[in-house]
């Protein structure tokens, strides 16, 4: 695939979730509290128009609940649109939450395979890649211990190492920079920065200004499920921090 043919385009994208508070949970809830069999929907994203091409390093910013992660999940194909269209071209690596799917009873080595299933990269699994992951995580012999014996830092190291060693055209990251002790945080941050530079398109959800300024050339501000500003990271961060929107 040529780098020019890699793109993301969302046109009039709307996403609606269901109102779980209204959803009937029992007969009592149905008859006494007025729970509904068919709960109403709640808007998550409203008429999103967004596109990006090769070379775009984008940061999604906004307050909690503004729709940043939801938009990332729409792009990744995890959330379907209620209306509108999303077109993408290029292979994806979506790191929404590191370590989603760890089996605590299994060893770190077994969990590498499990995470590769969940990251859709099982076809790339080789013993050599497994060794690269183990070396990057610096877990050494502990890789053959059950995960239930790992500290949270060790889990983060393994999760990060599996997640970032994915090769793709489009990299989607949701608050996934910090992992492990300070030495590993520095190493992983540098690795991630390098990776973001080398992939054709990267999209990052973050609240960390320094990471956004260092790694992104475009910033998108979301509020209540709508894009309200799109431009240079310095300008958009100034707007966001000033609260003038």
């Amino acid at each position: 695939m040529t780098s020019n043919s890699i793109f993301i385009e969302v046109v009039n994208g709307c996403v609606e979730g269901i109102n779980n508070q209204q959803r009937v949970k029992s007969l009592k809830h149905f008859f006494i509290n007025g729970g509904k069999l068919f709960p109403s929907t709640i808007p998550i994203l409203n008429k999103i128009n967004f596109s990006c091409r090769n070379g775009d390093k984008i940061a999604f910013i906004g307050s909690n609940g503004s729709g940043k992660s939801s938009l990332l999940k729409v792009i990744a194909g995890i959330y379907p649109l209620k209306s509108g269209t999303v077109k993408t071209s290029g292979s994806f690596a979506a790191i929404i939450e590191m370590g989603a799917g760890f089996d605590m009873e299994k060893t770190g080595r077994d969990n590498i395979k499990m995470l590769m299933i969940y990251n859709n990269m099982l076809s790339k699994y080789t013993k050599q890649l497994e060794q690269e992951i183990i070396e990057f995580s610096e877990l050494g012999d502990k890789i053959d211990l059950p995960m239930k014996n790992y500290s949270s830092g060790m889990m983060s190291r393994l999760a990060f190492s599996v997640s970032v060693l994915q090769d793709s055209d489009i990299l989607l990251l949701d608050e996934v920079f910090a992992a492990g002790d300070s030495h590993f945080v520095t190493k992983s941050t540098n690795f991630m920065k390098n990776k973001m530079r080398n992939v054709p398109i990267s999209i990052l959800v973050s609240h960390q200004e320094n990471i956004i300024k260092d790694n992104c050339n475009r910033c998108i501000l979301l509020q209540n499920g709508s894009i309200i500003a799109d431009g240079n990271p310095d300008e958009i961060l100034k707007l966001y921090n000033g609260g003038e929107y």
Binding site: K73, G77, I78, E97, A100, I117, N119, N120
Partner: peptide, 14 residues
């Protein structure tokens, strides 16, 4: 497996 399904790109029929 809700916590996994909401965070990864994978066919849910698996």
């Amino acid at each position: 497996r809700g916590s996994i399904i909401k965070k990864v790109i994978i066919s849910r029929t698996i």
